[in-house]
Simulated assay, not measured.
Amino acid sequence: MALNLSSRAARTACAASKIAARPIATVIPSRTYSTEQTNEDKPRWSYTPTQAKAPFSLHLNSTRPAFHVNSDPVLLDRFYTRLFANNGEKLLSEETKWLAVTHKSFDQGRRGFNDRLAFFGKRIVQLQASLALAQSSPKGGVPGENNTDEFGRVPFSHPALEGLNSLSVENKNILTDRTKLAELAKSYELQTVLRWSPRKPDDLRASGIDLVLSHTLYAILGALSLEQGSVVAAKFARERILTPLGLKHLK
């Protein structure tokens, strides 16, 4: 019994000595003061979140050439002015302007990307294209005007229904073809502000730049609709996308 008590007392004394030997610096947390700008003070689009970074790069000794993307807000504002006309850079918030032109391939998607905006924008273009085709005059005249019925029946016709023959999936796909949208985006110089990481930096066409440009144009329209409303977005889709692609006299 005495041996057990002495062993217990020895362990207690040993533990107490370890606690007493701890330096004060480990008990009181130290404070560091820095005048450098932290990531929280920077715009979200301008940096990769610290917690999303790996401790080292997996691309060791990579021979892939670097691909430069725009990081100049002035250049981005000039693009939106070309696209939306005067004061176009003020239609979208600062963060949304960058998000709309950021593809998911850029920085592994760690700064946000425009997939959901593009999905929304594409639906708007498809709707406006359907309305425009339904309002257009049929190339072959009024359906059934040259067909005679043996019983003398006359099919119902109305000016509002004359364009229904033009409304088809094929016509809509031809109108909103990816290549045409990409050429339209290039005419607005979208490629100068597009943020993406091509698979082959020395061959952008093989990397799918046409798809990325059309995707980004849809995303800009989706962002415009969310921040300025459906009326402004529908007008932009008709006047700045569908009319240059060949649809005229849109109401």
Rank of each mutant, 00 (worst) to 15 (best):
H68L: 07
L58K: 12
E36G: 05
S93I: 09
A118Y: 13
L117S: 05
E95H: 07
F120M: 00
R110Q: 14
Y47H: 12
L76S: 05
D115K: 14
K104H: 11
S62K: 10
W45A: 10
Q126S: 11
G88N: 04
F56D: 04
L117F: 11
K104A: 11
N39W: 03
S57L: 14
D107L: 12
F79Y: 06
G109T: 15
E89H: 08
Y33V: 02
L91N: 01
P43G: 07
H59C: 09
S62T: 10
R82Q: 06
G112I: 12
S93D: 07
F113T: 10
N86P: 05
D115W: 01
V101L: 05
T35P: 04
E95M: 06
P43C: 05
G88L: 01
H68G: 01
N70M: 03
R78S: 04
S71K: 10
Y33I: 04
W45C: 02
G88Y: 09
V101C: 09
T48L: 04
N39Y: 06
T96F: 08
R64W: 04
R116S: 11
T48D: 07
R123T: 12
S93W: 13
P73D: 02
K104V: 07
R82N: 08
D41M: 02
K90L: 01
N86S: 05
Y33W: 04
A52R: 13
W45T: 11
Q128C: 05
W45Q: 10
G121D: 00
L92A: 11
A85K: 07
E40S: 14
T32F: 06
P65H: 08
Q108T: 15
D107Q: 15
W98Q: 00
S62P: 12
V125K: 02
F113R: 11
R123W: 06
A118H: 14
R64Y: 06
L76H: 05
N61D: 06
I124Q: 07
E95G: 08
